[in-house]
């Protein structure tokens, strides 16, 4: 078996109908499951940036990137550093939590994780939390012990190489 790991790829594309489908298909075709995808305006007018996070065998990722680059609407494909320290990675989550016995513990956790309470209701709150995927997952894990999670909405990952790393490339 080849080694499987997590890859983050940044793809700059012209925002035309069907381009997301074309890019996603090339990952799916080689058995890569997309665990997160974000799309939004980039620093260049007309171009949008897709940040794609996939799990899959290391040996095929280069070839998939070349295939993605062949999609006519794709302007640039750049893998983001596989080293956690060499990249900045953020994701935002909205979490709807229902109070149970311990309301205070929930507020404490939100503060420790530097979350924001963006809505308060009779029965619970909505928390906004930003960070790397691991931080959000740790928060979800802990808060589910103090309250009841009703709903989670996550933005998916935005990532880029750190200043020094991208200069070296």
């Amino acid at each position: 078996m080849n080694k499987k790991s997590r890859h983050i790829v940044s793809v700059l594309v012209y925002n035309k109908a069907g381009v997301l489908r074309k890019v996603a298909h090339l990952f799916a075709r080689r058995g890569y499951n997309i665990s997160s995808i974000t799309v939004g305006k980039s620093e260049i007018p007309d171009l949008v940036r897709m940040i794609i996070v996939v799990e899959g065998e290391d040996n095929a990722i280069d070839q998939i990137e070349k295939q993605v680059y062949k999609v006519i609407e794709v302007y640039k494909v750049s893998p983001i550093s596989s080293n956690v320290e060499d990249r900045v990675e953020r994701e935002m989550a909205l979490i709807k939590v229902k109070f149970e016995d311990n309301k205070q513990e929930i507020y404490q956790l939100v503060e420790i994780f530097r979350g924001k309470i963006v809505d308060v209701g009779q029965e619970g709150i909505i928390v906004e939390i930003t960070g790397a995927t691991s931080k959000i997952e740790a928060f979800v894990d802990l808060i589910s012990k103090s309250g009841k999670i009703i709903e989670i909405a996550r933005t998916g990952i935005a990532a880029m190489d750190r200043w020094d790393v991208s200069q070296g490339k």
Binding site: D62, K66, Y69, K70
Partner: peptide, 8 residues
């Protein structure tokens, strides 16, 4: 001519 063929 196709870089995706190299090393495939």
């Amino acid at each position: 001519i196709d870089p995706a063929e190299i090393g495939k």
